[in-house]
Structure formats: structure tokens, C-alpha cells
Write a protein that binds this DNA or RNA. Sequence first.
DNA 1: GTCATTGTGTAGCATTGGCTACACTATTGT
DNA 2: ACAATAGTGTAGCCAATGCTACACAATGAC
Lengths: 137, 137
Amino acid sequence: MEEFREIAVGHRRTRRDHAAETAEDYVEAIASLLAEKGICRVVDLARRFDVSHVTVTKIIARLKESGLVVSEPYKPLELTDLGQRLANKSRKRHQTVYEFLLAIGVREAVAASDSEGIEHHVSPETLAAMQEFLNRD
Amino acid sequence: MEEFREIAVGHRRTRRDHAAETAEDYVEAIASLLAEKGICRVVDLARRFDVSHVTVTKIIARLKESGLVVSEPYKPLELTDLGQRLANKSRKRHQTVYEFLLAIGVREAVAASDSEGIEHHVSPETLAAMQEFLNRD
DNA sequence: GTCATTGTGTAGCATTGGCTACACTATTGT
DNA sequence: ACAATAGTGTAGCCAATGCTACACAATGAC
Ligand SMILES: [Mn+2]
Ligand SMILES: [Mn+2]
Ligand SMILES: [Mn+2]
Ligand SMILES: [Mn+2]
């Protein structure tokens, strides 16, 4: 009976997901802002996430070190190739989760809100099951 | 066009969910251990979550202040009425998410792992949609 | 009864993601 | 040109969640 082992694995997964979550949301937001208005500044992200500009600045510093973002003082933000790839992957997964929630009868505003958290915990296998469901339906 | 407002609301929701997440997982685990073996100690939780006993001790201190847990030095942990109610609510929601994932074709081990993170981001409305789907199917 | 094992507590540290306050840079309007 | 506004940086703080190292309490074995 190694149920606890299995449970512990689940919790480790969830903690890993949460560690990746900020990077995913930020590169997705940067790509989105670049697409929408051609430019992405720290304040844009601060407004989007409803946090202070200081919080954004510190997180951007880490994303730079992770090789996802490029930025110079007082200049707008850009994504590296790696950052763009992560942004694309995240955007698609997010969209699938959102559409899936709509498909099972959740209202738009609620689906938008719930999908923002759920997306980061959806494994490739579950994502495939959601896509399958959308194609089937 | 207040899309950013809407998006910001979603991110605020996700941050609130994460703040509640630890309490939910812990009272659920305590209730589960009490049901399984009649007693719940700090080490049991440390094993279950795969963290150190120190991490558990600190989190338990907060849950005590929140009125969810009762404990005295060197004694096993207990839940308050409030803690038990939260544990029940969390267990049921977790179970529904797990069964829902199985129902859309996700394998058991993956459903167990994914549901551990997803559960905390499922609103009452989405939970109802999942239950509806399970009853219908 | 003593000793080993198990469980708990506590000190001290790191990282992440929040914040305010304040100073500085850059842009815009007149 | 220059003042006001918008954007950025930096210092310094907090809380949450993780850790190791070490000390102390409780339990069990013999
Ligand atoms: Mn997203
Ligand atoms: Mn998100
Ligand atoms: Mn989460
Ligand atoms: Mn969980």
C-alpha cells in the first residue's frame, strides 16, 4: 500500500506547476501585448496582472536570467525565441482549457476566470482528452 | 474595451485560490489520516506532502490561528468544526474533479496528479457543470 | 531502568511574490 | 524650453513555503 507515495507525487507535481506558472502567464501576456499594440512595457503587465510595477520588474529580472525575456533599462520588453515558444504553447493550452469549459456549459466570464488557474495544472494527456472532447462534440 | 480589467480579475482570482490552497489540502489530508488510522501527526503530513516536518509545523501554526486545527505540543492534530467542514467540502470537490477527468478519458494516475492542482481553481459553477456531466454520462 | 528510535520544536536561511516610498528618466503638451 | 505626466529603478519591508542543523520529548525494546 504505497498510496502516500502516489499522493506525494501529486503534490510534488502541483508545486512544480506553480513554479512554472508565473513564467507561463508572463510570456503569454507579453506576447499578447506585443500582438495587440506592438509594444510591451512594465506598466502594461502591472495593469494586466493587477500588481505593482515593482513586482513586475523583479519577475522580469528572473525571466531574463531564464532566457525567456530580453530587456534594457527604460526600453520595452521583448521575448527570446525560447520565450515565444513557451508563450505559444501556453496560449494554446489556455485556449483549449477555456473552450473546454465553455463546452461543458460554463459561462464565459467564469470559464475565463477558472481557466486562468486550471491551465497550469493540465498535463499533456489531459489536454489531449480535452481536445478530443472538443473535436468529438 | 475593458478586457484587461477582466483579465486582471482572473489573475486576482487565481492568487486568491492559491492562498486558500494550502489550507484546503492540509485539512483534507488531516481528515483523511484521522479516518484511516484515527490519529494524525506532523510527520504523517510531512510524508504525505513530501516536505520536511518543519514546513508542516509552520503551516499548522497558521491553520491554528485560522481556527481550522487544534493542537498542543507533542500531541496529535485535530480539526475544529470549521476545519472538518472545509475538509468535507474539499474532499468532495477533489473527488468530483478526479472522477470527471476519468470520465473524459484520462488515466487514473494522471487524473490523480492533475486533480491535485486543478481542484483549487474550480469554481462552484464549473464544479456543478462537472457533476452534471457525470450524472448525464 | 536505560538506550535507541521516533517525533517535535526552534533557529536560521533562501526564494518567490507581494507592497510603499522615493528618486530618476523619458515623453508629451503648450 | 520647460513643466507636467508617465514610466522605470531601487531600497527596504512583509508573508508564505521551502530547507538543514540541532536540541529536546516521548515511546518502545530489552
Ligand atoms: Mn494563461
Ligand atoms: Mn494562468
Ligand atoms: Mn494552482
Ligand atoms: Mn490539492
